[in-house]
Nucleic acid binder design. Structure first.
Lengths: 124, 124
DNA sequence: ATATGATATTATTATATGCTCATACAATCA
DNA sequence: TGATTGTATGAGCATATAATAATATCATAT
């Protein structure tokens, strides 16, 4: 993936724990990545009020079954949602509510940025 | 992009503002997307202590100049960093410190998840 | 055992993304 | 002006991602 990079060090001569750092950055990036999809965000939004079956999510989002299932799998793999099988149905629910804090923070940022832009445009 | 979807409505019959919603979700997704890159996260991390030139960031991260410049542009386009030109140099700095709150939240989530996994593996 | 319905997975295709080299651009200096 | 240096950008390749149709799996009912 990244083929560059060699061991940058801190001033003291102590080597920066870049190997470790790389892994952490990769994990963080993956987490952000799973949230970087409108359909997945829509699914999460639907799940705010509680668990839902795949079929219900298909209906609620207007997506295709395969696609919804796929995105749910991605969210599940990242531990964002959990799955509960009951008979024929698969109930998905939010596993990590911090997700919504994330979204709110982003919305705040966006709002701030758009407001600033508004002001910039309107104010001259 | 998403070609599906038709106007899902709330129970009351009032049409859900899906058009609006879609745009918001798109924006939020874009914001997450720009953070879903190890190199960009690395750049942001470097910028924690204050503004830096492209060259300094190239050195600090071990990336190629073109690549670093590109990622900085992406961050700039999203309003995450700002640019200040001084002579030949371009100084980049964090524009939206909320970014770090985001990263912290993600780290918390990841830590919680990994801990849980540890426990699951160790305890069973 | 067979049929049915809900969910998951596979294969395919289209699109997006990231990286690199080469080059263009801008500011400074000789 | 031309040379130099720092930064940005275009083209091309390799890879990743997403959407779809088709198919497989699983649970249940008959």
């Amino acid at each position: 993936m990244t083929s560059e990079r060699r061991g940058a060090r801190t001033e003291g001569g102590r080597p920066a724990p870049r190997e470790f750092d790389d892994q952490v950055l990769e994990l963080v990036a993956e987490r952000f990545q799973v949230l970087a999809e409108p359909m997945r965000l829509r699914l999460l939004n639907q799940l705010r009020d509680g668990e839902m079956t795949v079929g219900a999510l298909v209906e609620a989002t207007g997506g295709r079954q395969a696609n919804v299932s796929r995105h749910l799998s991605a969210l599940f793999a990242q531990g964002v949602v959990s799955r509960r099988k009951e008979g024929v149905f698969a109930y998905y629910r939010i596993q990590d509510p911090k997700i919504f804090d994330l979204c709110e923070l982003v919305c705040d940022s966006l709002h701030a940025r758009l407001s600033a832009r508004q002001r910039a445009l309107g104010g001259g």
